[in-house]
Amino acid sequence: MSELDKRLSLPVERTSASVRSALPLRAASLKRSRLKENALAYAFLAPSLLLFAVFLFYPLVKSVYLSLHSTDPAGRIAGFTGFDNYSDLFTSGLFVSGIKTTALFALLTVPAGILLALILAVLTHNMLRGKRLFQFAFSLPMVISVGSASVIWKFLFHPTLGMLNYLLEQAGMAPVGWLIDPHWALLSISIMTVWMNLGFNYILLSSGMQGIPDEIYESARIDGAGPLRVFYRITMPLLSPTLFFVLVVSTIGAFQSFGQINILTQGGPMNSTSVFVYSIYQESFINFRFGTGSAQAILLFLVIMLLTLIQFKWVERKVHYQ
């Protein structure tokens, strides 16, 4: 970034000096103020740009570089391997099943999470009394960190002492091995994740609902529209930009999930919950194979980008911008 600054500030001196002699004074000062504005603008951008350069752009390039090499456990390059890291990933069934697990996890958490938050946001929006109280309750999971939430749910899911199995038993049903049964583990983590993300989705959707002018509702009511009709004809279209944003953000979020899996199941049982980021973590920071870890990270980047592009191309068409 310092280079950019230099390149920018050097011509400032030179041109302003030469321009001053050639042009009338007024034009020269105008030009000088424009150059000054340029330099100032980059000074305003400099802190962000510098940080992005060091902690985002450089690492991105380096991830690509690492993914084409093998490394020793300390992270030093051991040799060039070309696309071996990538082809190894695809030939090992573990990685492919990990992708499937991640996709399934996204399908289990994203639609359910958005739908629940939407229902709750619409219902609280129409409330006359106690609105703040309900808003507080439904936003609450947002401030519970993944660390605390996971430990709480670990005990709720506990096979013998947990509250969930106790309630199942009270209802006359057989207990479930929430986190220890390979058929249930991903679903259990999804339930917990839906709960955890509810706060964020709810706040975003409530915030979007507040942006819809009351007059539109009033005139719809005067025209005799029932609540369902109002929902489909007014709330949904006007809320669709927010819904779209929530969809994009939660899909990305689902592909980035890590904390709850690390604490609750550590990818098990039988790799049934080994999602994308967990396997990056495992490969890089437990097995210390930074090369294959980076290859996975690059693939994660591509998958997320692809999904986001698809959403912008196909879903955004249905979004109604005012």
Partner: peptide
Amino acid sequence: TMMVPWEVTMIPNYLT
């Protein structure tokens, strides 16, 4: 930069 998930830069950042 908003398109890049943070996890992608995690390994090099850790090394840095």
